[in-house]
Nucleic acid binder design. Structure first.
Lengths: 395, 395
DNA sequence: GGGGATAAGTTTATGACATCTACAAATACT
DNA sequence: AGTATTTGTAGATGTCATAAACTTATCCCC
């Protein structure tokens, strides 16, 4: 942002972002004048930029809205549906997921391919995923919707340092050291890579309201392990290698059981899927729905489930205090368990959080708004965020 | 950064920041051409901006440097010493501190007023501090150096939400709900307010090298309690209320002793000043220097000190993993204990950190570079950062 | 039903800004 | 001494957001 073209790029992005922002329920699509007020840009500038976006087909002008007040009625602007799309892919322990969205956020295509990927052959799985992706890309192309980029969510540690694009380690898949440049080449489109929880957190952030407390949260994604994404004031914390948010290996008890990571008493050994099932008195392979049913029906199971809540509260209290955040979003298995998990966890955290004790803040614990393949959705949004940041690159 | 004047403001700040950046040892002050290369701005742009800064007296042109290579010799640019200053104030449990610095980073004035502030009368202490400050401001004014702003570091939770400027709670001082607007008015200059550890972390960040791993760290400040500042990729994490970094209340053991905060097993109850002294076998009021001597001399004390290291390692491993950071900076009492603390803590963290295990990263634990009143220094830098961000406001 | 009042959006002109091109200055190398 | 090389400056240029004036389209009220 040092010279005029970059200033233009930035402002063009600002205007498009404003047009693509999810409207508050009941609110009409924004018009030029409103965008000018919200961005601080002059209305002339907004008009110019909007003209450019209209000419490029990225946005459309809607029919004038019956004016509520006096004055000339507004011409609402909205993203052009189907003008371009982004593809989000997700490899999870139990399924392959795909979501394609356009700038309106509408889901243009969706795939959910249930299959246990534990110990699977990476080459086979990636080939299967590439087939799914190519099929969707071809369908969208026939409808005139180009796919401008692909995001891939993986349940493990990834790296994009230097010119690398690789999965380093996904213990729950049994995958290691997997170069993803060939996969990117096969798709023929730029590939964005990140952890499953980080992408899912992005998808949630997209739906968060304007309140700062709502735009800061810890996203928890429990499947085989516990993943996490940290969002602080609209920004996803990445860390040095992009591995921030690994809540699963916060220490709960120094004398606890040994974790797969080598340490003792990790949160994962108390509140991971298998641990929860065992604690409640079900076989370790029990699904979260079964756990929910047991806890809801059986008082003894409910009592044992308290230990899980306590462990989560212990781990999360530290996280919330450390980052001065007051919201926890439950994803993955935790979303399923939310009916029996959210409220007890909230009240425990309310007691243990410094911001609540000293600042009167309210702790919120809620299930994720995105229910299916959230990481795929977030991966697609990560691609579209690039479009929003520099629309002219996609004219 | 939406229009031309703001672009100018930004670029002017970029150039001044580059000129005020602490040079690598042995490196000469940067010339216009080098600034152009580093900022990406055109050399004519840099010349124009430098002229403005020269005219305003914020920078000076040094005598030409004997050229090492062929070509015209460079005219190094440097911040103008004494052109303006910022004042940093620190109220700590055991002393009042003051540091005044100019854009070169030179300390123009320094005060250290040892006095136990526990249970002191806030009004008296603030009056004393204001006297110190006014004396220094007057002295600097006589030398022609205006003080453009004041930063105040407090050992507790502060708030600047809305138009407030207040200390909410400083348990170790016994202070609560203290409005600082009157203090600001008495100084007659804008007051920046923050936690002691956050400001101290800023001072350390200022001295960090260019390596990203060096510019991300957890700053620990142990006095009566344990404060902390989180710096992730050059950015100090604030959190919703600005209270992020409270490492002292990370849970170490769910069955541990009850902490003053109400929870059980907080890090503070294992690695706070009193806890350390007691663990080592000294009276709870023992100073860290005495602890260091005991641990260095007495093998039994050293053995017991291992428990402190273990507690810190447990708490910090979670922090480092959560934020994907590999550096810990020891401040306050911990800086004193560094000779017996840094290495054992480092090796424990090296074993427990995911980035080290999976990514081959090296964990660093080192004492703070700033020894005396680090928070006062950081508070002063926080003020000067505003000058660097918008120099024209101080012409 | 006609004349403000009001707000949205456009047209034309303006001024600020970074950059580009060309050039002058000052040194090292041969 | 001459040439290459790098720094820094001067004047011209094109881009960009903005300002002022104007048009368009509604509501409100008499």
């Amino acid at each position: 942002m040092a010279n005029s073209p970059e200033l233009r790029e930035r402002n063009l992005g600002l205007v498009l972002t404003e047009i693509c922002r999810p409207a508050a329920p009941g609110a009409p699509a924004p018009a030029r004048s409103q965008i000018a007020r919200r961005t601080g840009l002059h209305k002339t500038t907004v008009s110019q930029l909007a003209d450019e976006l209209l000419a490029a087909g990225l946005i459309v002008e809607l029919p004038p809205l019956a004016a509520a007040r006096s004055g000339r009625p507004t011409l609402p602007l909205a993203p052009n549906p189907g003008r371009l799309a982004a593809l989000g892919l997700e490899i999870n322990v139990e399924y392959l997921g795909l979501k394609a969205i356009d700038l309106t956020g509408a889901v243009l295509a969706e795939r959910h391919d249930a299959a246990d990927q534990r110990g699977s052959d990476p080459a086979r799985t990636l080939a299967r995923l590439a087939d799914l992706a190519r099929d969707v890309v071809a369908r969208l192309a026939r409808r005139g919707t180009p796919v401008v980029g692909v995001g891939l969510a993986l349940p493990g540690l990834t790296t994009t340092a230097g010119d690398r694009l690789a999965l380093l380690n996904a213990p729950n898949l049994g995958w290691r050291d997997l170069d993803l440049r060939p996969f990117e080449a096969r798709l023929g489109r730029p590939l964005k890579l990140d952890n499953e929880a980080n992408f899912a957190a992005r998808a949630e952030l997209r739906l968060a309201g304007p309140d700062p407390a709502e735009r800061s949260f810890v996203y928890l994604s429990a499947e085989a392990g516990i993943g996490g994404g940290l969002v602080s004031d609209d920004v996803l914390t990445a860390g040095l290698h992009g591995w921030a948010g690994e809540v699963g290996h916060v220490m709960i008890d120094p004398d606890g059981p040994v974790c797969a990571c080598g340490a003792r008493g990790c949160l994962e050994t108390y509140a991971g899927r298998r641990a929860i099932a065992r604690t409640v008195g079900l076989p370790a392979s029990a699904r979260p729905e079964a756990v929910l049913a047991a806890v809801a029906a059986d008082p003894a199971a409910a009592k044992r489930f308290d230990d899980v809540v306590a462990a989560l509260a212990t781990g999360l209290a530290g996280v919330l205090n450390l980052l001065d955040i007051t919201q926890v979003v439950l994803g993955g298995d935790y979303a399923v368990l939310a009916p029996v998990l959210a409220e007890p966890l909230r009240s425990a955290l309310q007691r243990r959080t410094l911001a609540a004790r000293w600042g009167g803040a309210e702790v919120t614990v809620r299930p994720a708004r995105v229910a299916t393949t959230p990481a795929a959705l977030g991966a697609a949004w990560a691609v579209l965020d690039q479009v929003l940041a520099n629309p002219a690159a996609y004219f």
